[in-house]
Design a protein around this nucleic acid. Structure first.
Lengths: 185, 185
DNA sequence: ACCGGTTGTGCAACTAGTTGCACAACCAGG
DNA sequence: CCTGGTTGTGCAACTAGTTGCACAACCGGT
């Protein structure tokens, strides 16, 4: 039940249409909660039906026309409640680690190349985050909102840093494995 | 499509019954791929129907009786193929970061306590991993399988280390926020 | 005026994981 | 012996996210 709250957060930051939300999910919000435009439209419909948001009256709601939404007080209350509610961390689930464990049994053939690819992807993502940090969080601007958002970005940066480091180490380990192991047994 | 492959890996390491698998998922495997017993039984049924595993002939298959499975050659081949196949990292999705972002808009009331709780949980998990590392990976034992499994455990340890560090920093940041901000707006 | 790409919105079907419950066998204690 | 907890297996319904497709409007060039 997180997507509706991600949308509420985004709409509170700035009222938007479905497509605008989609774009924003592809950027900042999607960095820790991705969603496709189909999900977003469906959820907008539900949120409107539930009375948590409403279409801005200025736009005419014809098909193929932009329709912007804003959050109603009930929506803000719902979001505040959701944010404050205690919630257990979701159980860990990482395919790459699972594949590595499988590789310990069936051999590492083919896996190494994909590890390299992942390393490259994480490097790129890390660079992008660092770019954003430099642009959006200069040392002087320092409102509470900024500090909280910066904290979120730092998590992204640190996680990508972790993955690039770990993948580098994993590849080094692979390089030292005996040949027959790498081919699979 | 990862659960069946997690099960294949586990069964290759050691043929097991549904309940034994469940226990192993609660321990080592569950550290990066958790599953309930219901999921596991369902998946065992499918894997057997697909001819990737079979019930060990020694056990009689009565209800309430242990029924152990072993991996067939087709299963091993499937797993090897799956392990080697390139696969994009799944899009990031973290509720806690989303809540923090929401808190930047609706206020941090209530969130801080849960952050503390998460910190405690991650500390515990980290300690548990470090215990496992000390027990299962002494410096001398050093087969290729060990090294790969150790790599997986290192990822777990480093991730928990990251979270404890990040949460500590986040809580420090919270402590510095002005009072009216923390109450919510 | 017509055509093809882009913008914007949306439905429907599918997949994977979660939750709730059921039920047989076995084992210990009254 | 029978009762109540534990072990072991499993079905069914639900939830959330993904994939594939459709279709209207608008905009540029020909």
């Amino acid at each position: 039940m997180s997507l509706p709250h991600a949308i509420l957060t985004a709409l509170l930051e700035k009222p938007s249409s479905g497509l605008e939300l989609t774009r924003r999910f592809d950027k900042s919000i999607g960095y820790f909660w991705s969603a496709t435009h189909q999900q977003i439209y469906r959820e907008l419909g539900r949120l409107e039906a539930d009375g948590l948001i409403r279409a801005l009256p200025t736009a005419q709601p014809a098909r193929g026309q932009k329709k912007s939404y804003e959050v109603l007080p009930a929506g803000r209350a719902e979001l505040a409640g959701w944010t404050a509610a205690a919630r257990d961390p979701k159980p860990q689930r990482d395919v790459l680690l699972l594949r590595l464990r499988a590789a310990a049994v069936v051999g590492t053939a083919g896996l190494e190349a994909d590890l390299r690819r992942h390393l490259e992807l994480h490097r790129r993502q890390l660079a992008e985050y660092q770019e954003i940090e430099k642009r959006d969080f200069p040392p002087d601007r320092d409102t509470p909102q900024d500090r909280l958002r910066h904290l979120v970005l730092r998590a992204g940066i640190d996680l990508e840093t972790f993955w690039t480091g770990w993948l580098t180490g994993a590849l080094a380990e692979f390089a030292e494995l005996p040949e027959e192991e790498r081919a699979g047994d």
